[in-house]
Amino acid sequence: MKKILLACGTGICTSTAVNAKLQRILDEKGLKGQYQITQCKIAEVPMKSADFDLCIATTQVSGDVKCPFIMGVAFLTGMGLNPIIEKILTVFETK
């Protein structure tokens, strides 16, 4: 089970839009049931990230992120999304 933290300014707006798209893509890749997604405010990322395998955000983090971090704006625009999906899939390959 991979734990993914999704963050945006408020933890409810753009991160929710990313959440829907990310779930659809992961399920299409046959990863249904192998991940768990939590949304939060960007300010909570430094504190929360230690418990996660991956953090995807639509805004910059100030402070340390204690897990791999990916900028997720491409989930909104579709521009440059494929390399980002590849990066996310590598997280599932590691134990």
């Binding site: 707006c13 753009t14 929710t16 625009t77």
Partner: peptide, 12 residues
């Protein structure tokens, strides 16, 4: 927020 975020997703 919970209702209107669907709208944002639709826009994107």
């Amino acid at each position: 927020p919970h209702k209107q975020i669907e709208f944002l997703q639709l826009l994107m």
